[in-house]
């Protein structure tokens, strides 16, 4: 089978960031950064984005995109040295997610294969939604999709395959979501060091650590001298 993959989300994001509109935003952002620091900018941008989204959700008015939006797709893979059924079983129960997904605070079962998610965004904002597990194929594939009205429109899937040579299980994760505040939000997230790609990768690494060693590897807190 030939390897096929469209441009990565990174490329998309990079391309998006260089549209004329976003360049303007970038210039404003750069100026704002110099004047009021990163936090001020992030606060203003996210505050505006969420105020708008909350208003939109509450009023049920059709979205008129004041801030440019683009769905963001993140794909990451990792190999975990455990048999496929074991890795699948762990992922089959989304209440495990907060253990390895850094930004997921809580996942609670609300019905058969349905869960309520609480996710922490930048600046301790909380985003919530209900999601259904979809397209479940035993030991092979699990999908999920947020129900309408979600703070972040998102869906994702994870595919499990045997790694060659008895090396365990390849886990392929794909998540698509509307970044908060669209491109501006994604850019702001990058400024905050919370790049979605990186997040997904770090989450998968923690999952691997849990399944292989029994816990997430930690070096904090640790003793240190004056900073």
């Amino acid at each position: 089978m030939a390897y096929q993959r469209s441009r990565s989300s990174k490329d998309d994001l990079a391309a998006d960031l260089f549209t004329p509109g976003s360049l303007a935003v970038g210039v404003i952002a750069a100026l704002a950064l110099r004047r009021m620091g990163t936090l001020g900018l992030v606060g203003a941008a996210l505050g505006g984005a969420w105020a708008y989204q909350t208003w939109r959700n509450k009023t049920g008015k059709p979205p008129t995109h004041v801030i440019p939006r683009a769905p963001l797709t993140v794909r990451r893979s990792i190999t975990i040295g455990k048999p496929r059924p074991e890795v699948f079983a762990y992922w089959r129960d989304p209440t495990h997610f907060p253990r390895f997904m850094a930004h997921v605070e809580d996942v609670r079962e609300i019905g058969p294969d349905a869960h309520h998610w609480v996710v922490r965004g930048p600046l301790h904002t909380a985003m919530e939604w209900d999601a259904d597990l979809v397209d479940i194929r035993e030991n092979q594939h699990i999908g999920w999709r947020a129900r309408p009205g979600a703070d972040i429109v998102n869906e994702g899937s994870v595919t499990f395959a045997d790694a060659p040579g008895g090396r365990g299980t390849e886990v392929h994760l794909e998540v698509t979501y509307d970044a908060p505040g669209g491109k501006l939000g994604a850019m702001v997230a990058r400024l905050m060091g919370e790049e979605p790609d990186r997040q997904a990768h770090d989450d998968l690494r923690r999952l691997k650590q849990i399944l292989e060693t029994g816990h997430v590897t930690s070096s904090q807190p640790r003793p240190h001298g004056s900073r």
Partner: peptide, 27 residues
């Protein structure tokens, strides 16, 4: 070494997959 990953299993401990708690920069 974590003692559990493929690299540790193959005695390639300094290549351990799990013991670096902050792998971002190296990656």
């Amino acid at each position: 070494g974590c003692g559990h990953c493929w690299f540790c299993d193959n005695q390639l401990y300094s290549l351990c997959d799990n013991s670096n708690a902050t792998p971002g920069m190296e990656e």
